[in-house]
Design a protein around this nucleic acid. Structure first.
Lengths: 360, 360
DNA sequence: ATCGGCCAGTACAACGTTGTAGACTCGGCG
DNA sequence: CGCCGAGTCTACAACGTTGTACTGGCCGAT
């Protein structure tokens, strides 16, 4: 059905290798021959069989992206950015969902289905630091997220601690003193929750504000409903606070909903800050002040790094850690500065911290 | 680096075909031989080269999914469902973004990159009915959405007219009479906007409520911000209404935000209904009453239909139109019934209309 | 005893492409 | 005049897999 080099060669009266040479812009082809071949290609509507080309070249021109779930806005937007960056590099993206399940993540790492791709961008959620050895795979791999550090593969991620610290400092600077947390993970040290909580504590310590366990809300999965539930529990137990730091936007949005249901005004009574800068944060009521963690940069860097590894598979370059810059996206939910200094800051554009890209 | 059938065969002392037979569960292999081969496979960590297998078999085990943008929640959730359904069928999914741009959509349809897949699930947004002939492609294709009807390819979509009519009837039944529209497309007949507006008009006509152009809000792209802008325009020009039908959830959510900013209570002063049943609709404030258009069924059916076409490429079965059932997901933004009949209905569970799946 | 049929396993070709080696022509230079 | 090198093109092999056809050996039925 689909035509091959043989068909084109027969029609043009040349060998199949000459057709191949024309397609690949090999220079030593007479213009007359080239034209004859091109005409035959057009006539037959020939397109090269990429599978055969892959077999021959050992490259597929596809990369895999594994995320927990596209239904989670953060990963949907991450995937969008990865696909876009890959497209610019002429590469297509095969998307897998792991559900954030450790077993499925481990299984995926050794799945033969990856043989269809040249490498993997992997965002684990179920695996932890103990599984670090499982990242030692026989194909190019770039890891995202904060579940596993110092692994054998390149790692692109965000400045969780610094960003969370900046978010907390922002709230402190606007006069808030009792900053509740929504979404903490019990006993976690590494991982988004652990790192962001650490940034929060660093900011409190630096400002001399005591850490108060009673306004820390714990939960498991970072779903909207859990943000709501978490906030409801805080309110029910009579916790007192004048600000909320949701460890991601979905949590913050869920929490904000509960605050409003309870008759509290945002940001009047309680300021709310999130983390992720989802598209949605721009359109909530009120719009959500949040951390833009550099998602696009992360996506572009992950693709670029992976393609470099694919290009030079034998390069003995050690695994790198690449960190994105972040900024505070200041909006309504925590824009009302309580003193004049921060009011000036507010109008200035809100880039509070611009970390240096650690490309080394 | 990676081992091949040859390596395994050499180690096990058999021919490569026997190894192949073991892998493919060919029955006529002696248990002793099978075991020897399996041991060699384990020892070498052999996994089959899927590219070579694809070349040989003519099948890749991958399908492509082309959507406008994963940043749009509807398509992110659609993609999630498609990937899940494909996974169950043992197939992987290559995701492309067209940006809803007609030229990129047309280009994608003849892109050689599709050669890496067995078929395409295509959700166009820029193309229109005039481009129907472009869907006559030399590979299995399933079309989604409502941009193009009666094309040469299988088409899986939702009951836009009936669902929009049911949404409108729901508002009418709860006593609303002045139902504003957010997100109409000027002059559109086909397409989600055109069809949903038609369902709206049918409901009005059936109830003897006059259609009033002054409460129809027009916009272009269905982004949150456009829903907000659209609603602001309606308010600015002094339009009077007691309900809003957002032609999708993002529009409705944007509109709801503006209503609340303007001091109007939802659903007290204005009831709001959306369309899509995004995850987000469950967690907005108030939660959004909306149409569940059967997205999961659409995804599963698209995958199943595509795989059937791939399986039987020569079957001369004519292109089919497959329609999903829908239901009203009744939530807070339009739950407050104004009469006792609908109050009873409200507590009943809100499946207002259950269309029959047209699998013929 | 001979044949047909089943079992276990093998050799070869083919999927469509591209790298390598080489054939053939032609012009220029020694 | 003969040789070299560059230009143009071709034949062949190989990427790793699997379908087809085949070889023997064995058993039971004729």
């Amino acid at each position: 059905m689909a035509s091959t080099l043989h068909d084109v060669a027969r029609l043009a009266g040349v060998s199949i290798k000459t057709v191949s040479n024309v397609i690949n812009d090999y220079p030593h082809v007479r213009p007359a021959t080239r034209e004859r071949v091109e005409q035959a290609i057009a006539e037959l509507g020939y397109t090269p069989n990429l599978t055969a080309r892959s077999l021959r070249s050992g490259r597929t021109g596809a990369i895999a992206l594994a995320v927990p779930e596209l239904g989670l806005s953060y990963f949907a937007e991450l995937a969008a950015s990865v696909i876009e960056a890959a497209e610019e590099a002429g590469v297509v993206v095969l998307v897998e969902q792991t559900g954030g399940d450790r077993d499925r993540e481990l299984e995926l790492l050794r799945s033969p289905r990856l043989k269809m791709t040249d490498g993997l961008i992997f965002s684990p959620l179920g695996m932890g630091q103990d599984d670090v050895d499982r990242l030692d795979v026989p194909y190019p791999l770039v890891v995202l997220g904060e579940r596993i550090f110092d692994g054998p593969a390149d790692h692109v991620t965000m400045r969780n601690i610094e960003a969370a610290r900046a978010a907390t400092e922002f709230l402190l600077r606007t006069g808030r003193r009792r900053i509740a947390i929504v979404g903490a993970h019990e006993g976690e040290v590494i991982g988004s929750a652990g790192l962001r909580l650490r940034g929060y504590r660093e900011a409190l310590d630096a400002a001399g504000v005591p850490f108060d366990e009673s306004i820390i809300g714990y939960t498991t999965l970072w779903h909207r409903s859990n943000g709501a539930r978490c906030m409801r529990e805080l309110l029910d137990r009579g916790a007192e606070f004048d600000a909320v730091f949701g460890l991601n936007d979905t949590l913050a949005l869920g929490a904000m909903r509960v605050l409003q249901e309870a008759g509290l005004r945002v940001p009047g009574d309680v300021a709310v800050v999130g983390f992720d800068d989802l598209d949605e944060a721009r359109y909530s009521i009120p719009s959500l002040t949040t951390i833009d963690p550099g998602r696009e940069w992360i996506a572009a860097t992950a693709v670029r790094t992976l393609l470099e590894r694919i290009e030079h598979p034998d390069a003995e370059q050690p695994a790198r850690l690449l960190l994105a810059d972040f900024r505070i996206a200041e909006r309504e939910s925590a824009g009302a500065a309580l003193d004049s200094a921060s009011a000036a800051l507010e109008s200035a554009g809100a880039i509070l911290h611009q970390g240096a890209g650690a490309d080394a």
